[in-house]
Design a protein around this nucleic acid. Structure first.
Lengths: 350, 350
DNA sequence: ATCGAACCCCAAAGCGCTTTGGATATCAGA
DNA sequence: TCTGATATCCAAAGCGCTTTGGGGTTCGAT
């Protein structure tokens, strides 16, 4: 059932039917009703390719997912980000075009998306320090919003980000206020921009009290449970073991907790943990008070906001670069407590 | 830069340029080379909407993601499944169209995807018992592959599934062989088909030894860490506490472990855990031997296989329903051991 | 009657590609 | 020289929609 069929079936021209369906005023309310009814009755939906060809709008936003068959890491944030985007996208009739870039040709994938008219804009995920995608996308003239920010990028671009520096500064201050001085940071991969900012916030906090962490107390790795476990185990066994651990993800925090308890120590008393919490659906930091003291910022909310921005950028291309900075909230959980000095330690052990 | 521009630039007709680019034999190798070079030089890529309109192929497969703003649960399997699909999709030039169905109208979303020509086929995720989508998709004439199977569905359809019943039978037998008789099952949501099959395998295994679990030893919930924790804590505190726990996800197993250790017990000695392991990238069951005894079956591999099947179904629609049954492998980890009877318990406690 | 404005509708031209059905040129064989 | 393949290329017709630029009708005002 296409437009021609439907219109001849109604004894109207395709033009009129099209206008009736798209809400143009040049058609009487009587015929509009007739058209809408017939369309619904026959389950007519305009072919989106034809419509897109005619209007120039793809009604889809792109997301390029790198899939390097070798050492790839699937982004654990991915699903929740998309879920956040869902409401606004479906409300506006947009879909998400997921383009899988296997191998080296991630740049080609972006170019292809733009040139072939598959999308009206893209979301840039997991930005790296000095990310090359900004320049490229600007050259392509494709609207885009970065989820995160990019250090070393001078040109203006639209982004939505959580204030990573501030969040980790807050987390660090929290631990310092509890008397901790030997704090370790289990961070994300070194080339991720957010990891860089988090380290920054941590170092600033330490420096403000005249402290500087041991270099081996700052570690970078994919944010998995076993990283948290292995790193924490090693830290606790080495000299100058930290009394508190800052982790970049709840998953890593779980691993740290496992390592601490395996040593017969108690989280929140012997060793404190503060983590960042993206509020992922499948990784809830539950309990009241919650299990982990955390800097909390919902990645779903970020997804929602990101798409609101992108759609606005698509609608009005010259509305200038948009920025949204989200603030992470520090929630007190059971995983952090005052540092044990010699007396309190002895007391605690009785 | 479109086909017309490129062809007039080359002094050729659009026909010839199109044929040259698409590898048709009616064009001399000399001009083909000239065309390919010019196309590369100007970064020409055919508009996919126009091409799709002309050929009838959308070069995309659909995935409908329900986003019920209220009590939604994002599928934790999602990202890895897609990553598995990535290689084959990008190799064949396909993309994934993610359609977010908010609210009630999931059916409409499928219909829309089909009628508007946005996709050439779809993957059906997380099938429910007696899932309505099969009938609908068949009526739509849209090729599809179900990730999972559907109890109570008589008609033939293509699916890829892990043998859930067999896997949980194996896991149950493993625990029974170790002498456990009071085994609990922390399963996924009751209406998910896979949860139903897993329970089946569990019950079969128990029945084969003349056992039947307490009803409160079988629990259904979203598979999160805190479900594992809360359920295990409750189980251990109640009468007839289980000596072994079967969980449907590594995440739940982590929670169970936390609960067990919080009680001062040791996993694998006092209480055994066997879990199913989807081999998610961000949830590795690492160590040698691995931390958890598990039935292992990669969801990424399932994603890869599912798309291979779907693309074949798209290429040759009458190649009949395809089926792939994957076998989960039981890997021995440190989380399961012989049941402690009174003597061995006394011995272990010394 | 006549005229202009409203109102309702339509024919046809695109959008950028593929594909059908030739057209032209080349060349070996009769 | 003529013929029929063979090899190259092209004009034009779609694919299903939107949108431009009118074209009739109706109706109140002149």
């Amino acid at each position: 059932m296409n437009l021609k069929d439907l219109s001849s079936l109604l004894g109207l021209s395709p033009t009129t039917v099209s206008r009736a369906l798209n809400g143009y005023p040049e058609v009487s309310e009587a015929t509009r009703a007739r058209v809408l009814e017939a369309a619904a009755a026959h389950g007519y939906r305009p072919d989106s390719r034809a419509r897109s060809l005619a209007t120039g709008r793809a009604m889809a936003v792109g997301l390029v997912v790198p899939v390097n068959s070798r050492h790839e890491r699937v982004n654990p944030i991915f699903a929740d980000f998309i879920a956040g985007a869902g409401d606004i996208l479906s409300a506006r009739g947009y879909d998400i075009m997921l383009s899988l870039a296997s191998g080296e040709d991630e740049a080609g994938t972006y170019r292809s998306l733009a040139a072939r008219g598959r999308v009206d804009g893209v979301i840039v995920q997991a930005p790296l320090i000095r990310d090359w995608r900004i320049k490229m996308l600007r050259d392509l003239g494709l609207p885009f919003v970065v989820h995160g920010r990019i250090s070393g990028e001078d040109a203006a671009y639209s982004w939505i980000d959580m204030d990573n520096r501030r969040a980790f500064r807050k987390a660090t201050d929290h631990l310092l206020d509890l008397g901790h001085t030997r704090i370790a940071l289990l961070n994300g991969l070194r080339d991720m921009d957010f990891a860089h900012r988090r380290e920054d916030g941590f170092l600033q906090g330490m420096a403000a009290r005249g402290l500087s962490p041991l270099t081996r107390h700052i570690q970078n790795a994919p944010m998995t449970e076993d990283f948290g476990y292995a790193a924490t185990t090693a830290l606790l066994e080495a000299e100058d073991a930290p009394t508190a651990i800052l982790t970049a993800s709840v998953l890593v925090a779980f691993g740290a907790r496992r390592a601490i308890e395996a040593k017969g120590l108690k989280v929140g008393r012997d060793i404190s943990i503060v983590t960042h919490d993206d509020v992922l659906t499948y990784l809830p930091n539950t309990g009241s008070p919650p299990m982990f003291t955390a800097t909390r910022s919902s990645v779903r909310q970020a997804g929602e906001q990101a798409l609101e921005m992108l759609l606005q950028l698509i609608d009005t291309p010259d509305c200038g670069p948009l920025h949204t900075l989200m603030e992470a909230e520090l929630v007190q959980g059971t995983s952090s407590g005052p540092v044990l000095n010699k007396e309190t330690r002895a007391h605690a052990e009785t």
